[in-house]
Design a protein around this nucleic acid. Structure first.
Lengths: 166, 166
DNA sequence: TTTATTTTTCAGTAAATTTTGAAAACTCGA
DNA sequence: TCGAGTTTTCAAAATTTACTGAAAAATAAA
């Protein structure tokens, strides 16, 4: 297979995958393009390579920087900003978990807390309380496990990971 | 807080959470409604409770059944189908992982495989091959770990989980 | 300063996804 | 077999989400 065709396929797939992980398609495609590039690219390069507008390019690069998946690289003597991707997959996963934990799990835990004290002792209320308690317990555990994962270094993770897969 | 208000908040939040996990909002709301119900509900109950159309209700119930998150329950002497939710959170998570693995991870692995043999020995091609190899390794490990997780029983999972969170 | 270049913003448009509603297809008791 | 009740389908409409393009703001060399 030609490099060009391979790159296109990868960018396309990474875009699709990303769109299921809270990263929109263009954002993931920009990340893919930077991942497989052996040098930093500027906004213009990205725009032309992916056939998207400057506005779209800019907004998604900034989102990627927010997520910690892309870094700005200033080249001496160059006016434009250049960008490189986080290439360590474990780090990529950790960044995504951090964002999603903050945007999804934590708000859910707050809601669960707020609704845990409904009034009543009838069967319907009891069932409700039971479900909320179960979910809260499960979510809290998940929250702690993810905290540890995020803080862990690669070795700890790989170790635990390897044990999990036996 | 009143039970009714608590239920509404929960359904709303579960809907939002679900929409980030490949489950659309309505689908997640139906699951939420069934989760906190102490008895099986029929399509009409769900439709009225969530203020959605019969078509929408039907399509999403069927999607939930496909995902293994809801089960049909036939009541003797009743003409209508009744539905109950999977209430074991670990099982819920496992079902979601199963679906997402099939729909996301496995296609990605196939693409990675297909593009792993690009031609060329220049720096750009080498970088591309390196990134693809890294991602393939990581994805394969994730795939195995998830397989084990899906097959595992609650005890195994909780055990490993507890070790992870120390 | 001034001016050329680059980045950011955002209202309007376009694309993708979800929902409706009505008709068709089932199902089962009589 | 009929027909009332129930479920399914799917084209069109509504809603949500993403993208563009052009103007404004920021940046830095002259």
């Amino acid at each position: 297979m030609e490099l060009k065709e391979g790159k296109q396929k990868f960018i396309q797939s990474w875009g699709t995958l990303g769109s299921h992980w809270g990263i929109n398609r263009t954002m993931a495609q920009i990340h893919a393009l930077l991942l497989i590039s052996n040098e930093a690219l500027n906004a213009n390069d990205i725009m032309e390579e992916l056939n998207i507008s400057m506005g779209n390019t800019n907004m998604n690069i900034r989102a990627l920087i927010d997520w910690g998946l892309v870094f700005k690289e200033l080249k001496p003597g160059e006016r434009k900003d250049f960008f490189v991707a986080e290439k360590d997959m474990l780090e990529v996963v950790k960044r995504i978990i951090t964002q999603r934990k903050k945007k999804e799990l934590e708000p859910m835990l707050r809601v669960l807390e707020s609704i845990s004290n409904v009034e009543g002792t009838d069967a319907e209320t009891e069932e409700f309380k039971k479900v909320i308690k179960d979910i809260t317990l499960f979510s809290s555990k998940a929250d702690s496990a993810l905290d540890n994962l995020i803080k862990s270094d690669s070795n700890w993770f790989i170790g635990t990971f390897m044990k999990m897969i036996k």
